[in-house]
Amino acid sequence: MFYPNSPQTSPQLTQIPYGQQYAMMQRQIQQPYHPFATTEPQARLYPYHYQGPIQQEQGGFITQQSTAASPQYVQMRVTPVDQSIMSGYPNQTANGSSSSSFNYNIHPQQQQQQQQQQQQLRHHAMPVGSVPLQDDRYRKQLIVNYLAPDVTSTDLHELFSRFGELDGARIIYDKQTNMSKGYGFVYFCHAEDAKEAVERMSGYEFHGKWLKVGYSTNPLNIVPSNSSPYVHAGSRGAAG
């Protein structure tokens, strides 16, 4: 039997160049792979992502010199942007860049009308829970959420009447099932009393439920100042 490094198959040491006398086997001759043993700084910083320098080929596509990437890492192929796409944008300079302001050559009167329309939209648009300043009635009506099913309009009136005089209180019921929808409205005579009720009743436990109280901004629920107070009856038909 002959071994790869046996004296019968191995040459004389004098015939082997210096430095390879003890590297006779194939696994010894093959050098191990060192990912950080390279002179390129990109490979030292990113050993798993770097795959060699990027070269520009004919046709405008950018390719990489090395083989496919590892399945664990996804390499994105980048193509140059066609400058003709950006030619339609206004205020574009000769080098292809555009300024931040756009001039669509709008007539001054049209621009003024658009600004007025935007101001009107901001004036009428009102986020949930906010209180408008032009109508004091919005500051007097509250919406009470997360009410228990057994709470009546009379219970709601008695709960909030300790903060001040009320114009009314009612629970909203479903017309088909005649069941409470879980929320109601309270109408105060003074805005200061309503503000105190919002601050003190939010998070209050009532009939096993934690109440959420806020201003009601729905104009359909506003009680006119010259109208008669609501009837605080315990029956659902009268309260709904």
Rank of each mutant, 00 (worst) to 15 (best):
F2P: 14
Y3V: 06
P4Y: 03
N5W: 02
N5Q: 08
S6V: 09
P7A: 07
P7F: 07
T9I: 07
S10Y: 05
S10K: 14
P11N: 05
P11F: 04
Q12L: 07
Q12F: 05
L13F: 13
L13C: 06
L13S: 12
T14Y: 07
T14H: 07
Q15V: 03
I16V: 11
I16L: 10
P17Y: 04
P17A: 11
Y18S: 08
G19V: 07
Q21H: 06
A23Y: 06
M24A: 10
M25T: 10
Q26S: 13
Q26H: 09
R27K: 12
Q28N: 07
Q28M: 02
Q28V: 03
Q30E: 07
Q31P: 06
Y33G: 06
A37Y: 07
T38P: 14
T38D: 10
T38F: 07
T38C: 10
T38G: 12
E40N: 13
P41Q: 14
P41E: 04
Q42R: 14
A43Q: 10
L45E: 15
L45D: 14
L45F: 15
L45A: 14
Y46A: 13
P47K: 15
H49L: 04
Y50V: 09
Q51L: 04
G52K: 15
P53N: 12
I54P: 14
Q55D: 06
Q56N: 07
Q56A: 09
Q58F: 04
G60F: 03
F61H: 13
T63F: 03
Q64S: 07
Q65M: 03
T67P: 09
T67H: 11
A69K: 15
A69D: 12
S70Q: 09
S70E: 06
S70I: 06
P71Q: 13
V74T: 15
Q75N: 13
Q75R: 15
Q75A: 08
R77K: 10
V78E: 11
T79I: 03
P80C: 14
P80N: 08
V81K: 15
D82H: 12
Q83Y: 07
S84L: 04
S84P: 08
M86V: 09
M86L: 09
M86C: 05
S87I: 03
S87R: 14
S87M: 08
S87L: 03
S87C: 12
G88W: 04
G88R: 12
G88K: 12
G88F: 07
Y89I: 05
P90L: 09
N91R: 13
N91P: 08
Q92G: 10
Q92C: 08
T93H: 12
T93G: 11
A94L: 09
N95L: 05
N95Y: 08
G96T: 08
G96K: 14
G96V: 09
S97H: 10
S99I: 08
S99K: 15
S100F: 06
S100H: 09
S100D: 07
S101W: 04
N103T: 10
Y104F: 11
Y104L: 09
N105Q: 05
I106V: 08
H107S: 07
H107K: 10
H107L: 07
P108L: 08
P108A: 10
Q109N: 08
Q110D: 04
Q111R: 12
Q111A: 05
Q111G: 09
Q114P: 07
Q114N: 09
Q114W: 13
Q115R: 12
Q115K: 12
Q119W: 14
Q119K: 14
Q120L: 09
L121T: 06
L121F: 12
R122D: 03
R122C: 08
R122M: 04
R122F: 04
R122W: 13
H124A: 06
M126P: 08
V128L: 10
S130Q: 06
D135P: 04
D135N: 13
R137P: 06
R137D: 00
R137V: 03
Y138T: 03
R139W: 08
R139G: 05
K140P: 01
K140M: 03
K140E: 02
Q141L: 01
Q141K: 02
Q141H: 00
L142P: 00
L142A: 01
N145H: 00
N145C: 03
Y146C: 02
A148K: 08
P149C: 05
P149W: 15
D150N: 13
D150E: 11
T152K: 07
T152P: 00
S153I: 05
T154S: 06
T154W: 03
D155P: 00
H157Q: 09
H157C: 10
E158K: 11
S161R: 12
R162A: 10
R162K: 07
F163Y: 03
G164A: 01
G164R: 00
E165F: 15
E165D: 12
E165I: 13
L166C: 02
G168D: 02
A169E: 04
R170I: 00
I171N: 00
I171W: 00
I171S: 01
D174Q: 12
D174S: 06
D174E: 06
K175P: 03
Q176D: 03
T177M: 08
M179G: 05
M179H: 12
S180N: 04
K181S: 02
G184M: 01
G184Q: 00
G184S: 00
V186T: 02
Y187Q: 01
F188A: 01
C189I: 03
H190K: 12
A191S: 07
A191W: 15
A191N: 03
D193P: 14
K195S: 13
E196I: 13
E196R: 04
A197I: 00
V198L: 08
V198H: 07
R200I: 09
M201G: 03
M201K: 02
S202N: 09
S202K: 03
Y204F: 11
F206S: 01
F206W: 13
H207G: 07
H207N: 13
G208Q: 08
K209I: 00
K209F: 05
W210C: 03
W210P: 00
L211I: 09
V213W: 01
V213L: 10
V213D: 02
G214Q: 05
G214T: 06
Y215P: 02
Y215F: 04
Y215Q: 00
S216V: 01
S216Q: 01
N218F: 00
P219A: 01
P219Q: 06
P219F: 00
L220H: 02
L220R: 03
N221V: 09
N221H: 13
I222H: 03
V223C: 03
V223H: 04
V223F: 03
V223R: 11
S225V: 14
S225E: 06
S225Y: 10
N226F: 07
S227R: 06
S228N: 14
P229H: 10
P229G: 07
Y230T: 03
Y230L: 04
Y230F: 12
V231P: 11
V231K: 07
H232C: 11
H232L: 12
G234T: 10
G234S: 09
R236C: 10
R236S: 08
G237T: 11
G237C: 14
A238C: 04
A238N: 04
A238W: 12
G240M: 04
G240N: 06
